[in-house]
Nucleic acid binder design. Structure first.
Lengths: 226, 226
DNA sequence: CCGATGACTGGATAAAAATACAGTGATGAC
DNA sequence: GTCATCACTGTATTTTTATCCAGTCATCGG
């Protein structure tokens, strides 16, 4: 018995599961709409009704966040198998420095070091640490030289801080997306000195490399100044 | 060393767990009040605050049903007590939440959790993680809720970020001291909204508890906003 | 071409929830 | 005796949240 779910419904279902795992509570209609870029919470409502009709979830009328997952039979589609060569049972994480153009982030020559940090400290799990260059995310508390804990993923939700590759350059920004924008996304800095980067997907290729799940700053010791 | 929870608090905690198990979502304040017979939802609110202070749950401000169970230490306190005190050879660090007035920072009841991070990652070595409250060090990239890696020390140098105790309150600030000042030091916030605290050592006792050696931020995952 | 279905926008509204404020007793420490 | 903490009552007020209504556009089977 395969799933009669549509792709979009599958995405909504995955989002619900992810939301419960990361926040402890199911999402509201508005949160679903925001995460998937809908401009109306009613779109989320429609999806929930459809999922309930198909038996994937159970809704409790009138109760806020009254969404319950039923029998998680199928494996989720979202990039579960992509962690190539990463030991999930490891107690440490590789730190990635400057990434050369054209090569994958996790290529061995990019690994500067390994740090004794449990990957499962973060939710979702961190796959590597990326050394941040520049101050474009300053107001999000991510400073030059910080190590960003990254969960490797090919997709991200509106509002998340992502590691993206644009024109073969790797950058860290907040992702902005709307349902109305078909060929457009924005990479927004968290610092008024930097303008948002508007990406036209018909002209430029944008690859999501992962989502930020934490920050680690070492070397706070010395009496250095900003 | 049993739970620092009172009987009533334990009952509330059990109820929350039961509610999640049976309905799939955490309870609201009104539902807690109703289940335990309170006539005011505010009674539930008070209990939740107390449980959060003790690290049994985590509350998300403004989010309906934003209650999360932390580290299910087990219903009853079994013989195997948790590692209290200072294991130097450990691979993890204790995280300290709110520090009660008059008691030492590393007292067992302040330990919210332990995180798998090698103490030697930091220089000098970190002895514990302190959960930062407030935004007074915002411009140093230390945000509300961050975990500050702290090296226990009784002295610090000018310009270092320190964990200090003043009037029995623990605070994180940058230390300012000049050779010319004999009885004076300043604790400077890294945020223009906070004025520097000028300390006259003849009148107030200032204790250095440690110096900041790093920052760790978890929970960067969800699409939450600042 | 028609009607059903999926995937939405936009606006409105009532109910549900969080949370602030002001109190009351009781208990135990100092 | 005073103070802090716990365990509440009661009243507001503001946000959140669920949910309804009225449409639009595209696709697909018949």
């Amino acid at each position: 018995m395969t799933n009669p779910l549509t792709d979009r419904q599958r995405q909504v279902l995955d989002l619900i599961e992810r939301h419960i795992r990361t926040t402890g509570v199911p999402p509201t209609r508005a949160e679903i709409a925001d995460a998937l870029g809908f401009r109306s919470a009613n779109a989320a409502e429609d999806h929930l009704r459809a999922l309930a009709r198909r038996g994937a979830i159970e809704l409790t009328r009138g109760r806020s966040r009254g969404i319950r997952l039923i029998a998680l039979a199928g494996a989720s589609a979202d990039g579960a198998s992509t962690r190539a060569g990463l030991d999930s049972a490891a107690l440490d994480l590789p730190a990635i420095g400057r990434v050369a153009a054209g090569s994958p982030i996790l290529a061995a020559e990019h690994v500067e070091d390994r740090y004794p940090i449990g990957p499962d400290l973060f939710h979702p799990r961190a796959d590597y640490l990326l050394r941040v260059r520049g101050s474009s995310m300053r107001d999000a508390g991510i400073l030059d030289g910080d190590l960003l804990a990254v969960h490797a993923a090919q997709t991200a939700e509106n509002g998340q801080i992502v590691v993206a590759r644009l024109n073969d350059e790797v950058t860290v920004k907040r992702l902005r997306r709307h349902a109305r924008w078909v060929y457009r996304v924005e990479l927004v800095a968290e610092n008024p000195d930097f303008a948002p980067i508007v990406v036209d997907l018909r002209q430029q290729e944008l690859t999501i490399e992962g989502i930020a799940v934490g920050v680690l700053r070492l070397g706070l010791a010395g009496p250095q100044q900003l």
